[in-house]
């Protein structure tokens, strides 16, 4: 139930990785490659995050994270070619803001979308009626499961451990960064992958700590071995995040962007979310 992840609906809704391979069938048939699907996904998650940021503190990071989880859950069963992700993304944010008890008014959301429209290659701005209709579609597709357990909660608890809290900040080319800051950034970026569909929140939090530690050249192995967590899973997630950063940290070639049927959605900015990663290298 709501206090315990293990008895929650979230736990029951986790999808094994093998089953995720079966999604986006129609998209693949239409000629999108796996690579492009991942890029599109990352781009739209980035969009959700930037919409949240554009609200100036009206929408907090956790709300954006919940919205991203809804977005991923929605596309386990659905296809980009059937449901335009560019309008599903803001609808996810709208619903998440209600579920997290920090509702944004629809008109405020429209303002945010207009503000970002140019930066995002003129994302279509959906109409009020559309948004409200999509809210219902989303509710239905999510099977009315709205409670999301967020890794942020676990992360804060782990970071409160004196052994981690005592780690000195690392100086990089662009400035100094503490482990906590880096973890948050990695976690925010991790939503561009689908790990939130497959793994428990505490596993994701631990993987973020491990990725962040590697980026900052700190060693958390001993600390992690002292935990009673499924370290195999933590390793899997760490690997997935690292691979994702490696592969998609580079700009997409102009040619790829110019594909006619993709010109709207896919963009070299898909790399943008990995700013953090590039910066620490």
């Amino acid at each position: 139930m709501a206090a315990n992840f293990w008895t929650s609906a979230h736990r029951k809704l986790l999808v094994p990785r093998e089953r995720l391979q079966g999604s986006h069938k129609a998209d693949l048939e239409k000629g999108l490659s796996d690579n492009q699907l991942t890029q599109l996904q990352a781009y739209l998650i980035l969009y959700i995050g930037d919409l949240a940021k554009a609200s100036q503190q009206l929408v907090r990071q956790r709300v954006a994270a919940t919205a991203c989880t809804y977005f991923h859950r929605f596309y386990v069963k659905n296809n980009f070619c059937e449901h335009d992700p560019r309008i599903i993304a803001p609808a996810c944010l709208y619903l998440a803001s209600k579920a997290e008890e920090s509702q944004i008014q629809a008109k405020v959301l429209f303002q945010m979308m207009k503000k970002l429209s140019a930066r995002y290659h003129f994302m279509p701005i959906l109409e009020m009626k559309q948004l409200l209709d999509l809210e219902m579609v989303l509710l239905e597709e999510l099977d009315f499961h709205l409670v999301v357990f967020s890794p942020y909660h676990s992360l804060v608890k782990f970071l409160a451990d004196p052994k981690l809290a005592a780690m000195p900040a690392t100086t990089t080319k662009t400035g100094t960064m503490t482990l906590a800051e880096c973890c948050w950034a990695v976690l925010n970026d991790s939503y561009q992958t689908t790990i939130c569909l497959t793994y428990a929140p505490h596993i994701i939090a631990l993987a973020c700590i491990s990725v962040a530690a590697a980026l900052l050249h700190r060693d958390v192995t001993a600390w992690m071995l002292g935990l009673q967590a499924d370290l195999d899973q933590v390793f899997e997630v760490t690997l997935e995040i690292t691979l994702f950063f490696d592969r998609y940290g580079q700009p997409i070639s102009a040619e790829e962007c110019r594909r006619p049927d993709l010109s709207q959605g896919c963009d070299a900015r898909a790399r943008g979310g990995l700013r953090m990663f590039a910066l620490t290298l």
């Binding site: 139930m1 709501a2 929650s8 609906a9 619903l95 209600k98 579920a99 509710l139 009315f144 499961h145 709205l146 409670v147």
Partner: peptide
């Protein structure tokens, strides 16, 4: 939303 969210979670 509150009603759906909470009752879908708790039984």
């Amino acid at each position: 939303i509150r009603e759906i969210m909470l009752l879908r979670e708790i039984s």
